[in-house]
Design a protein around this nucleic acid. Structure first.
Length: 811
DNA sequence: AGCACGCCGACT
DNA sequence: GTCGGCGTGCTC
């Protein structure tokens, strides 16, 4: 194999195909599928991924590979094939699919560097402009060259000036490809081998107290120690150590250090005894593992049924076979407790990957997989790409969670990628959830995967009572507050007993919109077609779409009246209202506004666990997996907010939310209680969640989906168009939709184009076309053709087209 | 994406 | 006449 096909790191559709290169003899043993290389491309050197090896190139006159970047290839044949599939299935470029599989630290960064050119001119030989002189001086001064960015920052320096200087050969531009993160280097110190330490003491000046202390330390502990630790232990500074090094008494060595994010010592723990149900589920998984054929199982376990213990023991079984395991968890529930549970069971064999890690930490965890140091990975969405070579098991916990769907290209769904990877390895995929997606439930019930129910809670803890409160009756009874009498009473009783409550509201901010009572105008975002939300903390109006913020107007911008009213309720408003109605109540509010900073999330939860507050008030983020022993009341302020969204999954999401929220109450010894406030008490998603009627809900929802032609009875592909100009986006979307209707098979429904629910966002107008398809044909080619046809007639780069397979939110 | 090549307008 | 604008097309 003397040639390699390479996907080059040039992010455009036009270059999204492999280019062939010759493998020079001296690189023959290094070039393999999945490795990164530097190759000449046009007039420059770019990074690329080797995707296949071949005896002959597809074209004549190929150029040679310049360099192999990594010692160990970051990808392999399996992942390269997976990327090929992903790029087709999810309509992304091959490059984007390959890049999403490696830690961002390895993604190529290109620097343009200016260095002095060959044509050195005498000062004054030219009439130098001021900017020109400053630029040349800066370039002379910079030892390793001046980055283009810095050059352009100099007053008066323009691109054309730089270009002119390059043409005159007074400057030269070189491009440097660099990896952003290198393994962290740490200095260690140890005694020099040859001489006994106590003899050295006499050679140290009597007044050099620190040096003496350091040598004394090594007399006691002669083994190497990290310089930083030595310094803190002895309150010494670098200089005294270095003096000893110079004297030949100590020596330094540089070691590569892994940035282990969890330093806490974890106590090893043992498998717990299983209930009959848990054991049956485990056996079902183990049987499939032993078959060495790909299988998917749905573990439908009510909240508190002990799914995690089943996962842990299933992983044990996979490891016992000498195969690895991946555990996917929604970002939000990847808490230290969760991680510790896995560390306690598998110790050093686990790597953790989540967004809380620094780029370098992530890279280190990932490297543990590449070099075989770990066999288990637990992490969020992107951990599905952990480069194992002998996978036995992939677990997707909280399988229904929307965070498994990536909402940038490549718009993959980690659950579906997991199943695809498992197919390659003959591995087992376990989808776990208390509230499976309707799609997975349907597939399990129709035999496409194995259905494993866990109906009982461990230790037979009772389910909490769920009360539905019809808020219309509250209004009739003259209660105009956002707290029903029932919730007020329950909250009072709960706090009096010294117990805790969780209140849930699916909306942050203070008020949903601001309205003038004089003229009826409400305040909208200048960049988006959506009302601004009032945030009380800094008295601003904010757009939850684009982040725009402005001060609250004292007068209506329309009519000048000062009768401004705030409508609707966000978390901030509820917090204030609570404080007013329950003086002395201690409240912790959790939403993206209070958890913005890293670690804030965890801090607030810890405070609540330590009973520093009576009420935890929050959005979506508190509905998942949290487990507090003293919470006996859960209140849902408005169950309808999700239900009213224009989304075919609205009922499903409402059911899931209420069921999950209900699971937060009474997880321990004390009985729990749930109060759900709603204006739609008779809606089946609310009623059935309150009655724990999961089977009935799924049956009903499936019927509705069948009737309305929605997944799981067809697949969806959304095509989203946006453009700064309204007329253009309308024309373009119509053109492509016409082309789609022409190219797609008749049985594919093409709906649209329609305006997106928020027509304008971030100053761009948005249209959308939806394809519903029941058949088994591959529509990719036809869709791509339609896209190309239409793009050809709208050459301006301002038109953006996003194709989203299996979209989660239809906005 | 970059970059070269190439074809038309306002300056030494 | 030439410098330089950005449209078009190509990169193994």
């Amino acid at each position: 194999m003397k040639f390699a096909s390479v996907v080059v790191d040039v992010p455009s559709r036009g270059t999204d195909r492999p280019f062939d290169y010759e493998i020079p003899e001296e690189l023959a043993d290094q070039v393999e599928v999945g490795c990164r290389v530097h190759v000449p491309f046009g007039s420059r050197i770019v990074q690329g991924y080797v995707v296949s090896l071949r005896p002959q190139p597809e074209v004549a006159n190929v150029r040679p590979i310049r360099e192999v970047i990594d010692l160990l290839p970051p990808l392999n044949e399996e992942l390269v094939k997976l990327a090929e599939w992903m790029s087709k299935y999810y309509f992304s470029t091959r490059l984007a699919a390959l890049e999403v599989m490696i830690p961002s630290a390895l993604r190529a960064r290109y620097d343009k560097i200016l260095i002095p050119g060959s044509n050195v001119v005498e000062e004054g030989a030219y009439l130098l402009g001021e900017a020109e002189r400053q630029l040349m001086e800066a370039v002379q001064r910079a030892r390793t060259g001046l980055s283009l960015k810095k050059a352009e920052a100099i007053e008066g320096v323009t691109r054309s000036l730089i270009r002119k200087l390059i043409r005159e050969k007074r400057l030269d531009v070189v491009e440097r490809v660099r990896d952003k993160v290198a393994p962290k280097k740490v200095t260690w110190v140890k005694p020099a081998e040859s001489v006994p330490l106590d003899e050295q003491m006499s050679r140290i000046p009597a007044n050099a107290h620190k040096q003496r202390a350091i040598v004394q330390y090594f007399v006691k502990h002669p083994e190497p120690v990290m310089l930083s630790e030595l310094l803190t232990a002895l309150k010494a500074t670098r200089s005294s150590v270095m003096r000893l090094v110079e004297a030949g008494i100590l020596v330094c060595e540089i070691r590569e250090q892994m940035r282990t994010p969890y330093h806490r010592r974890v106590v090893q723990d043992q498998p717990l005894p299983l209930t009959e149900e848990q054991d049956a589920a485990l056996q079902a998984i183990v049987t499939r593992l032993e078959s060495r054929e790909a299988h998917t199982l749905l573990l439908h376990g009510v909240t508190g049924s002990g799914k995690t213990e089943v996962y842990l023991q299933a992983i044990d079984a996979s490891l016992a076979q000498g195969r690895e395991a991946i555990v996917l968890v929604p970002e939000i529930s990847l808490t230290p407790q969760m991680v510790e549970r896995f560390k306690a069971r598998f110790g050093e064999r686990v790597a953790v990957m989540h967004s809380g890690l620094s780029q370098g930490e992530r890279y280190d965890e990932w490297r543990k997989v590449v070099n075989g140091a770990v066999q288990v990975v637990i992490g969020a969405r992107s951990a599905v790409f952990a480069p194992f070579r002998n996978l036995g098991l992939i677990i997707v916990d909280e399988e229904h969670e929307s965070s498994y769907k990536q909402d940038e290209t490549p718009r993959y769904h980690a659950r579906d990628v997991a199943v695809k990877r498992a197919a390659h390895f003959g591995a087992v995929t376990v989808l776990g959830s208390a509230t499976p997606s309707v799609e997975s439930y349907y597939r399990a019930k129709t035999g496409k995967m194995v259905y494993l129910p866990l109906k009982q809670r461990v230790q037979g803890r009772p389910f909490p009572d769920i009360h539905i409160v019809d808020m219309r009756h509250e209004l009739d009874a003259g209660n105009r507050s956002m707290f029903s009498r029932k919730l007020t009473e329950a909250l009072t009783a709960c706090v009096e007993r010294g117990e805790q409550a969780v209140l849930f509201l699916n909306r942050r901010g203070y008020s949903t919109f601001v309205l003038c009572r004089q003229c009826g105008a409400n305040v909208e975002c200048p960049h988006c077609d959506i009302s601004l939300t009032y945030h009380r903390v800094n008295r601003t109006l904010r757009c939850h779409y684009c982040g725009f913020a402005q001060a609250v107007p004292d007068q209506c911008p329309h009519c000048g009246s000062d009768h401004i009213r705030y409508f609707g309720a966000g978390t901030q408003k509820v917090e204030q209202e609570l404080a007013k109605r329950f003086p002395g109540l201690r409240i912790i509010r959790m939403d993206v506004d209070t958890t913005g900073r890293k670690g804030a999330h965890e801090k607030l939860l810890t405070a609540f666990r330590e009973k520093k507050a009576d009420v935890l008030l929050g959005t979506q983020m508190i509905a998942k997996g949290l487990d507090f022993p003293d919470v006996t009341l859960v209140g849902v302020i408005a169950a309808d907010t999700v239900l009213n969204l224009p989304d075919f999954r609205a009922a499903e999401r409402t059911f899931q939310l209420l069921t999950q929220v209900g699971g937060r109450a009474g997880r321990h010894a004390r009985p729990g209680r749930v109060v759900i406030q709603t204006y739609n008490p008779e809606h089946y998603s609310i009623e059935m969640a309150a009655n724990y009627a999961a089977t009935a809900f799924y049956r009903k929802e499936c019927q509705a989906r069948m009737k309305k032609h929605y997944p799981p009875f067809c697949s969806l592909i959304a095509i989203k168009f946006s453009h700064p100009d309204q007329a253009t986006v309308m024309k373009a979307s119509q053109r492509i939709t016409d082309a789609l209707k022409q190219y797609l098979p008749r049985e594919a429904e093409v709906l649209g184009p329609v305006r997106a629910p928020v027509f304008r966002a971030r100053d761009r107008y948005r249209m959308q076309t939806m394809i519903k398809y029941k058949g088994g044909k591959d529509l990719s080619a036809a869709i791509n053709r339609a896209r190309e046809t239409a793009e050809a007639s709208f050459p301006a780069g301002d038109l953006r087209i996003v194709i989203d397979r299996d979209p989660y939110v239809l906005l």
